[in-house]
C-alpha cells in the first residue's frame, strides 16, 4: 500500500518539481494528498465512463443488423468492460477499492463523462458512438500515455492499442451507412447532428493549461482545447469526405492559423447533464443496474471472494 501522506509544503514543492522533470510516480512512493485525490477522481471517472459507455452500445448487440455486426459489437463492448477492469485497478492502487467505486456508480453518486448520459435511437447512434465518441476518447486517452502516475500510463498503453481496433470498427460501420441507402444515410446524418454538441462538450471548456489543476498535477498532459482541435483535425475531414455534414454552420478550418473555428457549445447544458438530475437514459440504465445488483447480492462474495479487493 501507499505510504502515509501528510501535508508538507516543502515535500510538495519537491514532488511538483520532480513531476515537471518527468518523474513517474509509483504506488509505493510518497505523494501529496492533492495528487492522490485528483488522480483517484480522474481515474475513477475514466473507469466509470468505460462501464457507462458500454451500456448504450450494449443495447444494440441484441438489435444489430447482421450477425457480423452483432459479434463485433459484442466484442467491442467487451473491450470497454475490459478497459474498466484495467482502469479500476489503477484507482485501487491509490487506495480506493473497486467495490466501493462500483457501488457508488450504481448508486448514482459516481461521476462519468457527459457523452454516456444520452439515449440511443438508431444504428446511426452506434456508428457515432463507435467512431466519433470513441474517437474523442481515443484522442484524450492518447494524451494520457504521458500521465505521471506510472500504473495509469502503463494501463493506457494497453487501452490505446485496443482502441485502434475500435477506431476501425467505428469507421467501418460509419462508411457502410454513408455508402448505403438513403434511409441509412439519413440515419447517420441525424445521429451526427445529435452527437455533435455532446462531443464538443466532452473535451471541456477551453480552460488555459496553466489554470487546470489536472495539468499542474501531471494527471493530464494536454489542454482541453488542444484535444478538441486534434479531434476536429481527424474526424471532421473524415465525415466531410463521406458526405456527412457537420451541424455547426460556423465550423471552419483556417489554414493560416491551423486552427478550427466553431460555435461555442452551451456550457450550462453540459453542467446540467453531468451535475444536474440524471437524464432519463441514465436514470433508467442505473435503475436497472441497481435492480440487478440488489438481486445478486448473494453472488458478490462468491464471484469476487469474501474480502473487498485491496491494493497491492
Amino acid at each position: 500500500m501507499s505510504a502515509t501522506s501528510t501535508s508538507d509544503p516543502v515535500r510538495e514543492e519537491e514532488f511538483l518539481a520532480a513531476l515537471d522533470a518527468g518523474h513517474r510516480v509509483e504506488p509505493f512512493e510518497w505523494m501529496p494528498d492533492t495528487y492522490r485525490t485528483l488522480n483517484i477522481k480522474f481515474i475513477e471517472m475514466h473507469a466509470n465512463s468505460e462501464i457507462m459507455g458500454a451500456l448504450p452500445e450494449r443495447e444494440w448487440i441484441a438489435r444489430a443488423p447482421t450477425l457480423k455486426r452483432k459479434r463485433s459489437l459484442a466484442a467491442k463492448v467487451q473491450d470497454e468492460v475490459g478497459h474498466a477492469h484495467l482502469i479500476y485497478r489503477v484507482a485501487e492502487s491509490l487506495g480506493r477499492p473497486r467495490r466501493a467505486m462500483y457501488e457508488d456508480l450504481i448508486a448514482g453518486t459516481g461521476r462519468f463523462h457527459n457523452v454516456f448520459h444520452y439515449p440511443t435511437y438508431t444504428w446511426g447512434d452506434v456508428a457515432c458512438i463507435g467512431f466519433l465518441v470513441d474517437g474523442a476518447a481515443i484522442v484524450t486517452q492518447r494524451a494520457l500515455l504521458d500521465t505521471s502516475y506510472a500504473p495509469y500510463a502503463r494501463v493506457m498503453k494497453r487501452v490505446v492499442a485496443e482502441e485502434s481496433l475500435h477506431y476501425r470498427h467505428g469507421e467501418d460501420i460509419m462508411l457502410a451507412l454513408a455508402a448505403g441507402t438513403d434511409e441509412q444515410f439519413e440515419m447517420l446524418q441525424e445521429a451526427v447532428n445529435r452527437w455533435w454538441e455532446p462531443i464538443m462538450h466532452f473535451f471541456g471548456t477551453a480552460v488555459p493549461a496553466e489554470e487546470d489543476p489536472m495539468i499542474r498535477w501531471g494527471v493530464k498532459g494536454r489542454s482541453n482545447e488542444a484535444s478538441r482541435q486534434e479531434w476536429l483535425n481527424t474526424y471532421v475531414p473524415k465525415m466531410w469526405d463521406m458526405g456527412i455534414d457537420t451541424p455547426d454552420p460556423k465550423l471552419a478550418y483556417d489554414p493560416d492559423t491551423g486552427w478550427w473555428d466553431y460555435t461555442e457549445p452551451d456550457w450550462d447544458r453540459l453542467a446540467q447533464i453531468v451535475k444536474g438530475e440524471p437524464t432519463e437514459a441514465t436514470a433508467s440504465r442505473l435503475y436497472w443496474r441497481q435492480l440487478l445488483h440488489r438481486h445478486h447480492a448473494w453472488v458478490h462474495d462468491i464471484v469476487l471472494g469474501p474480502e473487498p479487493a485491496t491494493a497491492a
Binding site: I51, A54, L55, R58, I61, A62, L67, K70, R71, A74, A75, V77, Q78, V81, G82, A84, H85, Y88, R98, W288, R289, L292, H296, V299, H300, V303, L304
Partner: peptide
C-alpha cells in the same frame, strides 16, 4: 443472444468478460 444480456451488467467485471465471450461464441 441471451448470454449477451450480461454484457455490462454481470455480477463482476471478470464474469462480464467471460459471458461476453460465451455470447460471441454462440453468434
Amino acid at each position: 443472444h441471451r448470454a449477451s444480456h450480461w454484457t455490462g451488467v454481470a455480477p463482476s467485471l471478470e464474469e462480464d468478460l467471460a459471458f461476453s465471450t460465451i455470447a460471441q461464441a454462440g453468434i
